[in-house]
Simulated assay, not measured.
Amino acid sequence: MTTLELRGVGKSFGPVLALSAVDFDAAAGEVTALVGDNGAGKSTLVKCIGGIHRIDAGEIRIDGTPQHLHEPRDAAQLGIEIVHQDLALCDNLDVVGNMFLGREKITRLHTLDENAMEQLAQQTLASLSVRTVRSVRQRVASLSGGQRQTAAIAKSVLWSSKIVILDEPTAALGVAQTEQVLDLVRRLADRGVAVVLVSHNMNDVLKVADSIAALFLGRMAAQVPRTDVNQTQVVELITTGRSGELGLPTEIGATT
């Protein structure tokens, strides 16, 4: 089932047209890779989905219903979570503190319910088969890059998100840590979440994605099933925006 649909989305910043008539789908239980060169519009598109930018044209639908996203809180209430490249984690807090940051559980005595939060954090990590984080009471400052990424992804799962957008989750990670994060991305989709993976790493994209959407200068060059393309074709879409010469479908949901 298609959880997220964008139809004809446009966004301008003054005279600069950042997005033009963009169509995009992300289905529940699948990883949809969003690729494109620097300046293609990926960050703007993600911020529109996350309620950071208001769209100027088109429509955003969640589970088939048109939605008006005026701020990030609107997106969060609809089950949209973004794991930004900088992860937005607090080094001085432990994993539990970060996972519940701004959404802390309170006891009847109006104190922090540390036991309940710790238990929920452990259950969330266990549900994702995470074994790389030794303790949810570790300070984030002591975690490796892969462990930090895991904590950020688990935070999005904790709030029963329908749509999770991961912005370059393997950037600056080593080979082993990258494998761990990609495995976690796959498990997240297997839980029925619609995962959007924003990445420049073609190896990661081709390994974990179910479909690939390529932006070129603010327009959607093509969105196609992963099985329909190879790395050369994806790079061609990213660098030229041409899909017809490759024999690829240009309409979302079409097949060759």
Rank of each mutant, 00 (worst) to 15 (best):
V96N: 05
M99N: 09
G64R: 05
L87Y: 05
D94W: 01
Q67I: 02
L69N: 07
M99Q: 12
A75Q: 03
Q77S: 08
L89G: 09
Q77W: 02
V83R: 00
D94Y: 01
N92K: 07
E71S: 14
D91Q: 13
D63L: 06
L69E: 06
D91A: 15
Q85F: 01
D91R: 13
V96Q: 04
M99A: 14
N98R: 12
E71V: 08
H84S: 03
A75M: 05
I62W: 12
L93N: 09
M99C: 12
D63V: 03
A76I: 10
A75N: 02
E81F: 03
R73S: 04
H84C: 00
F100N: 13
E81Y: 04
T65L: 03
E71Q: 10
T65K: 11
H70G: 14
G64V: 11
G97E: 04
V83S: 00
H70M: 14
D63F: 05
I82T: 07
Q85G: 03
R61T: 14
D74L: 10
H68P: 11
L87W: 04
D74F: 04
F100G: 13
C90M: 15
P72N: 12
G64N: 07
D86V: 07
I80P: 01
A88S: 09
V95T: 07
L69K: 05
L93A: 09
L87N: 07
H68C: 11
D91W: 08
A75T: 10
Q85V: 05
D63S: 06
H68F: 09
I62Q: 10
I62D: 11
I80E: 07
I62L: 15
C90V: 15
T65R: 13
T65V: 09
P72A: 13
F100T: 09
L87A: 06
I80F: 01
I82N: 00
E81A: 04
Q77H: 11
L87K: 04
G64Q: 09
I62P: 10
Q77T: 08
G64C: 09
Q85S: 03
I62C: 12
F100S: 10
L89Q: 10
R61H: 13
L89H: 05
V83E: 01
I80T: 01
C90W: 13
H68T: 15
D63Y: 03
D63N: 08
A76M: 05
H70A: 14
P72W: 11
Q67L: 03
L87F: 07
A75G: 04
M99K: 10
P72R: 09
D86I: 09
D94V: 11
V96G: 11
Q85W: 02
P66E: 06
I82F: 09
A76Q: 10
D86R: 10
V96A: 14
I62R: 04
I82Q: 02
D91P: 15
L78M: 04
D63P: 06
E81T: 02
A76H: 09
N98G: 14
F100I: 10
D74A: 08
R61E: 14
A88C: 11
R61Q: 15
